[in-house]
Design a protein around this nucleic acid. Sequence first.
DNA 1: CTTGGTGCAAAGCTTTTGCATATCA
DNA 2: TGATATGCAAAAGCTTTGCACCAAG
Lengths: 131, 131
Amino acid sequence: MLRARGKKVTPQRVLIYRALLGDRTHPTAEQLHARLKELLPGLSLTTVYTALNDLVQAGELRRFEAGDGSVHFDPEMRPHAELVCVQCGRIDDAPVEPASVRMPEEVQGYRILRRTELLHGLCPSCQADPA
Amino acid sequence: MLRARGKKVTPQRVLIYRALLGDRTHPTAEQLHARLKELLPGLSLTTVYTALNDLVQAGELRRFEAGDGSVHFDPEMRPHAELVCVQCGRIDDAPVEPASVRMPEEVQGYRILRRTELLHGLCPSCQADPA
DNA sequence: CTTGGTGCAAAGCTTTTGCATATCA
DNA sequence: TGATATGCAAAAGCTTTGCACCAAG
């Protein structure tokens, strides 16, 4: 996949790509960097940013802004909504309602390329413990 | 409304609030500031930011991130989607599909407080003129 | 060998904050 | 008069950029 795009396969990228594929936590660039530099101490934040941007451009990763100023990455490319806890910041994927699945190709003259749905609320543990 | 919240009525706020009410362009804080300082030359960006944040907190204004890093404000509080042109940055309001209107109160244990729907695409003029 | 990547430090942006002054109630 | 807002400048946070060195193809 990398080679097909004229990119090089480096240890850093392999690590970053692998980490993301199994990740359901919607990390930010910094969160990912914090975790990965324990595995590869020299890993720089710059490299994480470039790798993430590459993946987004290649259509392998979805990038979204959670609504509180933070930018998150999600390897799930099928249509879904993001559940964002306004208290603890936790983010989960939610299946979209059937009606929302058929993304319109055109709305008010706009040609639609992608859709993002954010649901802000309180996650189960923040409801139980409104610290 | 301001007085009800223990706030003072200043010329700056009157100007900012009035400008927003009739605005369908989803301006950013800076765009709004640029326009308004022609009417009130001394107006500072700081004041615009505080006024906008106040309005959002008061529930009079909706704040959303367009997906490209920019933060926009929208006086329309009824449920709707945002049409974002990925080329020129123009933003329009779009009526939501009937199925999306009934916002779920609860999804996967989350208590839902609000919903944001973004549709990214190409606006009519950018389709005609893919500069 | 040649192109592209990495890591560091510095630059860039947007938004917030501290503080003295001015303004509203 | 007393509380709050304003405006400036500085600080803060996140992301990108410039550059020298290194590594993959």
